[in-house]
Write a protein that binds this DNA or RNA. Structure first.
Length: 554
DNA sequence: GCCGTTTTCGGCCCGACTGTTTTCAGTCG
């Protein structure tokens, strides 16, 4: 079954194979197309059916044709030819740490080495000794790369989910702010853009004493190994295996460096081409006209020097945001922390009492949350439903009053209310899809549906399911919940919800620990989807008071 | 292979770091 992910993977493989064949610009063209395809919110087949493949950034005539071949037959003849021409092991050698296409190609063409195991044998046999460009250090490095690839196969540690990286990044940034002689410390890279996964963590420091910053950084307890250290950058590996790159720049260059190291690569390339057109040059130290630095202290300065409005990090993917920033107006204001004055979906534990309710209220007040949806019933992992103890329910009701900005919500599976709560006035339903019922059931009469929660469960086969639920949310006027994790909606699907006209709901993490990463990440995902304040629902929609009387009581 | 209110051809980001090279090539981000 052809899929967007499958097409993207095929183009990445083409890029790798072209790399070892020594092609100069084609590999990046195929990779750019692969990245664009991955961010699509609809199936390639649907785009192809409308004859709009060329509208995908980075897709021209040649790649559009290959997409059509892939959709029709599940394979791409060009890729099959490349696979036939290049031994699979050559790409594997290219992926070894510290090696690249040039070196892999030399091993293959000059020495007849066709893969990592043959490379190991060649090193053991001394076949690299005396080869131009390979001194003892380089040979040792290659040998160690082969060894570590054997221990950790494939592409190494890979990319980590952002919710795992978030607490680590917070700790490192805070520790450097406390212990290093630094003006400013910020995490940059795909972490700052709130990508769903993070490869390496980039941390940027503004300081005039890089050596002292590196010393403080290397001494952090989670640092396992210092991989390299120069005058302006240091790379370490944490005990979790996460690689962290630290860059130190002077304060006058901090904005330019933050812009540069936040990326994305495509966004930066686009900015530089604009700079070139204006007779300017952009690098991580500033925007230059000749030798004169005309901007660099802040990101806003850098964008302004290029005639652009400042672009929020979460949308810097060269998917149209540069053109929007060039229109001469401010960039559309994306939803921010202070817009989130309500939380539709707060859970209290099954045994919650009045003190828990008070704590929740206090947490809400402290974060500027003036309306709360409190789930008084829920669904356990085994599918059974529960309600709060009657006593706690009564206390919640008594404290809630009519104007406290608190409403109750009842969380259900896809089919109706749990029996004990049927008929309660003022209840809104929060519906969560389950594996057993992947599709929405016909809407039963009762309280309105406020929210579809824990949607997602992504993967290729989950795509259609997400689309059906988003469509259903639009029909019944529900919002969809955005957040990290396998059951939540990431930025791609938040984008789909926005395009469908479905409001987003974002958690504030009110009942979690204070450093609960879920809330800021969910906000970042919504911003990646381009969500503005009006796209987010923070309170239940106004509705007429229910006419019918309660038909039962718990 | 893609792209273009300077271009449909001739560009395609740019600097840090390492190892090996006596002035640079390759990798990385």
């Amino acid at each position: 079954m052809p899929s967007n992910a499958g097409a993207a993977e095929a183009f990445r493989e083409i890029a790798d194979l072209l790399d070892v064949l020594g092609e100069r610009f084609k590999p990046e063209a195929y990779r750019r197309a692969a990245r664009s395809i991955e961010t699509l919110t609809e199936e390639l087949a649907a785009v192809a059916a409308r004859n709009e493949l060329r509208s995908i950034p980075g897709v021209g005539d040649a790649i559009a044709e290959k997409i059509r071949e892939y959709l029709a037959t599940g394979s791409i003849p060009y890729l099959e030819r490349l696979r036939h021409d290049v031994p699979a092991g050559v790409v594997a050698m290219m992926r070894l740490s510290g090696l690249g296409p040039k070196t892999a190609r030399r091993f293959w063409v000059d020495l007849g080495i066709e893969g990592p195991s043959a490379l190991a044998a060649a090193i053991d046999a001394g076949r690299l000794d005396g080869v131009k460009g390979f001194g003892p250090k380089k040979i040792a490095q290659v040998r160690s790369a082969v060894e570590s690839a054997r221990i950790a196969p494939a592409t190494g540690p890979g990319r980590a989910p952002i919710e795992e990286v978030y607490p680590v990044a917070e700790r490192i940034v805070n520790a450097l702010r406390a212990r290093a002689p630094a003006d400013r410390v910020e995490a940059a890279g795909s972490f700052r853009r709130r990508r769903e996964t993070v490869g390496d963590l980039d941390v940027l420091v503004s300081s005039t004493e890089p050596e002292a910053v590196f010393d403080a950084f290397s001494a952090l307890p989670e640092v396992r190994e210092v991989r390299l250290r120069g005058g302006t950058k240091e790379t370490v590996v944490l005990s979790t295996g996460l690689q962290v790159d630290l860059r130190v720049v002077e304060p006058a260059a901090f904005g330019a460096a933050l812009q540069y190291f936040t990326g994305s690569k495509d966004h930066n390339v686009h900015l530089r081409s604009i700079a070139r057109d204006r007779g300017l040059k952009v690098n991580e130290y500033g925007v230059y006209r000749g030798d004169e630095r005309v901007a660099g202290r802040t990101e806003e300065e850098v964008y302004a020097a290029l005639g652009l409005a400042w672009v929020p990090p979460e949308v810097r993917e060269d998917q149209g945001e540069v053109e929007a920033a060039a229109k001469g107006r401010a960039f559309p204001r994306l939803v921010d922390d202070h817009d989130l004055t309500g939380d539709l979906h707060v859970h209290l534990p099954e045994a919650a009492d009045a003190a828990d309710v008070d704590r929740l209220r206090a947490a809400a007040r402290a974060r500027g949350v003036t309306s709360l949806g409190v789930v008084v019933g829920g669904v356990r992992a085994d599918g059974s439903t529960f309600v709060l103890a009657v006593d706690a329910r009564a206390r919640l009701d008594a404290r809630e009053g009519r104007s406290a900005g608190v409403w109750r919500a009842v969380e259900t599976g896809p089919t109706g209310l749990p029996p004990p709560l049927r008929g309660l006035e003022h209840d809104y339903r929060i519906v969560r899809p389950t594996r057993d019922a992947p599709d929405p059931a016909p809407l039963a009469p009762g309280a309105p549906v406020l929210l579809v929660a824990h949607l997602g469960g992504g993967g290729e086969e989950g795509v259609g399911r997400v689309r059906r639920w988003v469509e259903w949310a639009r029909e019944v006027g529900a919002a969809v919940e955005v957040g990290p994790g396998p059951e939540r909606l990431d930025a791609t699907w938040a984008r789909l919800a926005r395009a469908t006209g479905v409001p987003l709901a974002l958690p504030r993490g009110l009942t979690g620990p204070t450093d609960d990463p879920t809330a800021p990440i969910a906000l970042g995902f919504a911003r990646r989807a381009g969500a503005e304040p009006r796209d987010v629902r923070v309170a239940p929609p106004k509705r007429a008071e229910p006419r019918r009387r309660p038909t039962g009581s718990p």
